[in-house]
C-alpha cells in the first residue's frame, strides 16, 4: 500500500486520538475510592458498561472494528496478532496430546489463523494448512510432547517460532512503529527467558532453543549470561539500550515488562503529528491496547482491594 492510501485512515485516527485516556485520567482512576467510582469515571470517557470484563472486551473489539473500517487490508497488522497465534497453537498441541476438546475460553479470538482451524490442523496432524512459519514448530512441539510429556519444552518450541516470526514480520512491514514493536517484543522476551533460565539453572540446550535473534541484543552473549546467572545478565544488558531497564528487572519481571511497554509508548508518541504513513495507525492500535491493559490492571487492583501505590507502580504511560 502506498502512503496516500493512509491519509483518510490517519485523519480518522486523529479524531479517535482525542478519546484516548491520558496519564491524568489513569491517575484519577487509580485514585478512585471504589470499583464503582472507577467504573463511573470510565463511563464518563465512553467506556460504557457495569461489568469490567465485558467493558474491556467491548473496547478491544472496538479497536479492530475501527481498523477494519479505515484500512482495506488488515494483514499489515498481522505482526500484532502473532502472540495470539502462538497461544492458540500451544492450546491446540496440548489438546491433541490429552485428547480433550479445546473450549473457546482457552483460545484467543484476535489471531491471524482461526483458532478452530489450528485445533483441527494439529489434531489431524495436517500441518500444511498452517502458515509456513508454524508448520515445523507445531509438528516438533507435538512430537516433543508425545515423546517426553514435557509441556514446557513443547511450549518453548512454539514460543521460539513465534518470536522468529514476529521479528521477520516486523522487519518486512517497513513501518517504523511495527519494526520497533517487533524488536522490543523479541528482545524483552529474550531477556525474560534468560532471567527465568538463570533462576531455574537451565542448560545451554534450553537457551539455544528459546532465545531468538534480534538486532538490539547479542544472542550468544545473552545465552552465556543466562548460563552464568542474574548478575551476568544485568552486566550484559548494561551495555545495551535496555540498561535503564536493569533496575526494573532487579525488582521483578512485571516491572521490566512495564519498562518495555513505556519505552514503546515513548517511541510512538511523535506519531501523533504524522499524517501520511501506516505508523500513526499502528501507534494508535498499540496505544489503545496499552490503555486497555492498564485499565485492566487498575480495575483488577480495585476488585481485589489492593493499595493505591501498589496499583500505581504497575500502570503504564499513556499514548494519549
Amino acid at each position: 500500500m502506498t502512503d496516500k492510501n493512509y491519509i483518510y485512515a490517519v485523519a480518522r485516527v486523529r479524531s479517535h486520538e482525542m478519546k484516548l485516556l491520558s496519564d491524568q485520567t489513569i491517575d484519577r482512576l487509580v485514585h478512585a475510592d471504589s470499583m464503582k467510582s472507577a467504573l463511573e469515571l470510565l463511563n464518563g470517557f465512553g467506556w460504557n458498561g457495569s461489568d469490567p470484563a465485558e467493558m474491556l472486551q467491548t473496547q478491544e473489539e472496538a479497536i479492530w472494528s475501527f481498523v477494519d473500517e479505515i484500512v482495506d487490508d488488515r494483514s499489515v497488522f498481522n505482526v500484532l496478532h502473532l502472540r495470539n497465534d502462538g497461544h492458540n497453537l500451544k492450546a491446540a498441541v496440548k489438546a491433541a496430546y490429552t485428547g480433550e476438546e479445546v473450549s473457546g475460553t482457552l483460545t484467543l479470538p484476535r489471531a491471524n489463523i482461526a483458532p478452530a482451524l489450528v485445533v483441527e490442523a494439529v489434531r489431524e496432524r495436517n500441518f500444511e494448512v498452517l502458515p509456513e512459519a508454524f508448520r515445523e514448530s507445531a509438528k516438533e512441539a507435538l512430537d516433543e510432547l508425545f515423546k517426553t510429556g514435557d509441556g514446557h519444552r513443547s511450549d518453548t518450541i512454539i514460543d521460539r517460532a513465534v518470536l522468529d516470526e514476529i521479528r521477520r514480520a516486523g522487519e518486512a512491514s517497513g513501518d517504523e512503529v511495527l519494526s520497533f514493536f517487533s524488536e522490543i517484543t523479541v528482545a524483552s522476551s529474550d531477556i525474560k527467558i534468560a532471567v527465568r533460565g538463570a533462576d531455574t539453572g537451565a542448560g545451554r540446550e534450553y537457551f539455544e532453543g528459546a532465545v531468538a535473534d534480534c538486532s538490539s541484543l547479542k544472542r550468544e552473549e545473552l545465552i552465556q549470561a543466562g548460563l552464568s546467572g542474574r548478575e551476568a545478565i544485568y552486566s550484559c544488558l548494561s551495555s545495551t539500550e535496555y540498561a535503564e531497564g536493569v533496575p526494573e528487572l532487579k525488582k521483578s519481571i512485571s516491572a521490566f515488562e512495564r519498562f518495555c511497554d513505556n519505552r514503546l509508548i515513548r517511541f510512538m508518541k511523535p506519531q501523533i503529528h504524522h499524517s501520511f504513513t501506516l505508523s500513526p495507525i499502528a501507534a494508535f492500535i498499540l496505544g489503545r491496547e496499552n490503555e486497555i491493559k492498564t485499565v485492566r490492571i487498575v480495575l483488577s487492583g480495585k476488585q481485589n482491594g489492593l493499595e493505591e501505590d501498589f496499583i500505581r507502580e504497575r500502570v503504564r504511560e499513556m499514548y494519549g
Binding site: K4, I7, Y8, A9, A11, R12, R14, S15, I70, S275
Partner: peptide, 14 residues
C-alpha cells in the same frame, strides 16, 4: 485529491 482524503476522514468523524 490528497487533501480530500484527509478531509473525508475528518468529516466521517465530525
Amino acid at each position: 485529491g490528497r487533501a480530500g482524503q484527509a478531509a473525508a476522514g475528518a468529516v466521517t468523524e465530525d
